[in-house]
Design a protein around this nucleic acid. Structure first.
Length: 496
RNA sequence: GGGCUGAUAGCUCAAUGGUAGAGCAGCGUCCUUUUAAGUCGUUGGUUCUGGGUUCGAAUCCCAGUCAGCCCA
């Protein structure tokens, strides 16, 4: 072995570990330091009084993201929860003759990424930036790993998703998009609570995966010796609560579907479901329109949003188009008698529209393929597609005049299904027939406990679901569901 | 599940089949109002993994891993 110390200057992790060891040798443990803040960065800037430099005292803390060392003084910037706006991280000014020689020498050894607290007074620099002139600082946590590059940020999509914490630090667009999601969810809650809706939590572990058609995740409870599924929908438990007299009820919760992953699908996703007794699908139209309008106004500050994929602006104010499903199909196929055609004719019609159709599909599935592939993607402006064929959802009421269709709508915006809503089926006998037809004789797939609850009487009600992730895609202009989920599902790999 | 594309320094990216480079970050120096600060110098590579072709592979071929996009 050589007596020469190894050159570790190229290995940033090793350099930082050795800086930490030096500090500890000098009796300083930066992970045990304490500090009380008085302001977030934005509040500190607001606390500045024009023309009154060095009078207002603040204590701020955050992550060091910029260092401009000028020898005997430095400008640095710290990043905290509130520094995501236009002004960005808060600037600190550290002068050797103010903090003292020893403290200044230690400051020079700090690294980008370190978390520190600083006390000082506010002033405005020559170029007009409100800055904290530091009297005292404390290192609160040493960062042993370097941050991504300051100008280009983190752009490798894999790292953006796997190391979201870095994405949040260095990519302001990611940060504001994901924080916007929090504001959207928060506003949805407030909107519904203002209208006397009660928020509840229902079981995620269920013995029957009801309320939707999807493959569930399965798991096992050891003590009970029972298999469970993770819920694929919130619907059947919320309806039990309608039976229980909670007339306006909602849940914002995670559903799990054991299916493909794509730009529009994550195996776990967030649904809002709302039920209102003594209302119906038409009542839900008003509710969802008001909700989205107020979301746009309060969260985005505009009712018009840019839809990049189509190049159109989506306008939320004004009347929303309302059109029966069958009219859209007749229009798309150019066949006024579409619904009188045989299955073979429908398959031919779908193929004429360039669709691949599985001959084993049912009639209505062939037609619905046309809807989801050729019609829905073109519905950019908010559109209520009403009166879907009865085969498409077994939990809604049949239309009184035309019992082949349902009293339901699907709200479509930006080519995406945003909110389905029903006049909820509350006839327990009819509900049982629908379930049994859907289960195809597999009784274990019928939620008997729910049907038993319905037999006690559920008030007539309107119900609606909103996929929160898709709503966020729409309102934030994101390209993928992964961009509105903090930690999207990826294959697990060993830590780097 | 199928197709296409990609993986090079901590990060962002270069590199006709012929010595793997740059910017930022790091390390060392100068600078007490900077704004992607500036200045001078400088370290750093299992080119995703494993095979193959070739005198020679980051580059071509095969297999795999991971990711993105499209399709189912």
């Amino acid at each position: 072995m050589s007596d020469q110390p190894l050159d570790i200057s190229h290995d940033q992790h090793a350099v930082r570990l050795s800086k930490l060891a030096e500090m500890r040798a000098a009796g300083i443990d930066p992970f045990r330091a304490e500090f009380q803040t008085t302001h977030f960065s934005d509040a500190a800037r607001r606390a500045y009084v024009d023309g009154q430099d060095y009078t207002v005292k603040v204590a701020v803390a955050g992550r060091l993201v910029v260092i401009r060392d000028m020898g005997k003084s430095q400008f640095v910037k710290i990043f905290d929860q509130q520094s995501g706006g236009a002004e960005g991280p808060l600037q600190l000014y550290v002068k050797k003759d103010l903090v003292g020689d020893e403290s200044y020498a230690a400051f020079k050894k700090l690294d980008l990424g370190d978390i520190l607290g600083a006390e000082g007074t506010l002033f405005k620099t020559k170029t007009g930036e409100i800055t904290v002139r530091v009297d005292r600082y404390v290192l609160l946590a040493k960062a042993l790993r370097p941050l991504p590059e300051k100008w280009h940020g983190l752009s490798d999509p894999e790292q953006v998703y796997r190391q979201r914490y870095l994405d949040l630090i260095v990519n302001p667009e990611s940060r504001s998009r994901l924080l916007l999601r929090s504001r959207i969810v928060s506003h949805v809650r407030r909107f519904l609570e203002d209208r006397q809706f009660v928020e509840v939590e229902t079981p995620v572990l269920q013995s029957v995966a009801g309320g939707a058609a999807a493959r569930p995740f399965t798991t096992h409870h050891n003590a009970l010796g029972m298999d469970f599924v993770l819920r694929i929908s919130l619907e059947l438990y919320l309806k039990r609560l309608l039976v229980g007299g909670i007339d306006r009820v909602f849940e914002i919760g995670r559903n799990f579907r054991n299916e493909g992953i794509s730009r529009r699908h994550n195996p776990e996703f967030t649904m809002l479901e709302v039920y209102q007794a003594y209302s119906d699908y038409r009542g839900m139209m008003g509710l969802v329109r008001e909700l989205l309008l107020s979301l746009c106004q309060t969260v985005l500050g505009t009712t018009r949003i840019r839809h990049a994929a189509s190049g159109q602006d989506i306008e939320f104010a004004g009347e929303w188009r309302e059109v029966p499903y069958r009219d859209l199909i007749r229009e798309a196929t150019g066949d006024a008698d579409w619904f009188k055609r045989s299955k073979a004719e429908k398959i031919a019609g779908a193929e004429a529209l360039g669709l691949k159709v599985d001959p084993s599909w049912e009639d209505f599935e062939v037609t619905n393929e046309i809807f989801s592939k050729r019609i829905e993607p073109g519905l950019i402006q908010p559109t209520f597609v009403t009166h879907l064929p009865r085969e498409l959802c077994p939990l809604a009421k049949l239309n009184r005049e035309d019992p082949t269709v349902l009293d339901v709508f699907e709200l479509t915006i930006g080519g995406m299904e945003i909110a389905p809503a029903y006049s909820e089926q509350n006839d327990p006998l009819e509900q049982r027939r629908m379930f049994e037809a859907q289960a195809g004789g597999e009784q274990q797939n019928v939620d008997q406990d729910f049907l038993f609850a319905l037999e006690h009487g559920m008030p007539p009600a309107g119900g609606m679901g909103i996929g929160i992730d898709r709503l966020c895609i729409l309102l934030t202009g994101a390209e993928s569901i992964r961009d509105v989920i903090l930690f999207p599902q990826l294959r697990t790999t060993p830590a780097p």
